Measured scan of single mutants.
Amino acid sequence: SLEEAIRRAEEALRKGQTFEYAGIRVTTQEALEKFRKWAEKQK
């Protein structure tokens, strides 16, 4: 689910890792916010 993907992205960010979902790379807090906004639109 998208909620699960967001949780995994947050977890990866805390560990300093890269999270990738549907071709979207989350490597920074800013990218995480963009990913969250994108995920909201997918619902």
Rank of each mutant, 00 (worst) to 15 (best):
R36Q: 10
K43L: 15
A9Y: 02
R7T: 09
K15L: 15
R36H: 05
Y21H: 07
K34G: 09
G23C: 12
V26N: 00
E11C: 09
Y21D: 03
Y21M: 05
R25S: 13
R7Q: 11
F35L: 11
A39Q: 03
E10R: 06
R7G: 08
G16R: 03
I6A: 03
A39H: 03
T18H: 13
Q17H: 11
V26P: 00
Q42F: 10
S1W: 15
E20L: 04
Q17A: 09
Q29D: 08
K43W: 12
Y21W: 12
E30F: 05
T28V: 03
T28M: 05
R25E: 13
V26W: 04
S1V: 13
F35N: 00
E20V: 09
R8D: 11
E11H: 06
A5G: 03
E40G: 05
K37N: 10
L32A: 01
K37A: 13
E3C: 11
A31D: 15
R8T: 08
L32K: 01
Y21V: 06
R25P: 07
K43I: 15
Q29W: 14
Y21Q: 04
E11V: 07
A9M: 08
L13F: 09
R36E: 07
A39M: 08
R36M: 13
T27G: 12
K15E: 11
Q17D: 13
T28W: 04
T28F: 03
W38P: 00
E11K: 05
E4M: 10
E33P: 00
E30L: 08
R7N: 08
E20K: 03
E4P: 03
G16D: 06
I24E: 03
V26L: 09
E3Y: 07
R8G: 09
E4H: 10
T27S: 14
Y21I: 09
R8M: 13
A39D: 01
Q42C: 14
G23T: 04
L13R: 02
A22D: 13
L2A: 04
L32S: 00
K43M: 15
A22N: 14
F19N: 03
T27M: 10
K41L: 14
T18P: 14
A31Q: 15
A5W: 11
Y21K: 02
F35C: 05
E33S: 06
E30M: 07
A22I: 06
E4L: 10
F19E: 02
K37M: 12
E40V: 05
E11I: 09
E20D: 07
E30G: 07
A9D: 00
K41A: 15
L32H: 00
L32D: 00
V26A: 02
A9E: 00
A12I: 05
K15N: 15
E30H: 07
R25D: 07
K15H: 11
Q42R: 09
E10H: 05
R7S: 11
R7Y: 09
R8N: 12
A39T: 06
W38E: 03
Q42W: 09
R14W: 06
A9H: 01
G16Q: 04
A39W: 08
G23M: 02
T18D: 15
E40C: 09
E20H: 06
E33H: 05
L2T: 04
R7P: 03
K41W: 13
T18F: 15
Q42D: 06
S1E: 13
I6F: 07
V26H: 02
Q42T: 09
A31H: 14
E10W: 05
E30D: 11
G16H: 06
G23P: 01
G16F: 04
K41D: 14
A31M: 12
A5M: 14
L13G: 01
E20A: 04
A5E: 07
E4Y: 05
G16Y: 03
L2R: 03
A39L: 12
L13V: 13
E11D: 12
V26F: 12
L2E: 01
V26D: 00
R14C: 12
A5H: 07
F19H: 02
L13N: 01
G23K: 03
A12H: 06
K43Y: 12
Y21N: 02
G23W: 06
R7W: 08
Q42N: 08
K37I: 12
E30Q: 09
A9K: 00
E33T: 06
L2D: 01
K41T: 14
K43G: 11
Y21L: 05
G16K: 05
W38V: 03
Q17N: 11
E20Y: 07
Y21E: 05
A39R: 02
F35R: 00
A5C: 15
I24G: 03
F35W: 05
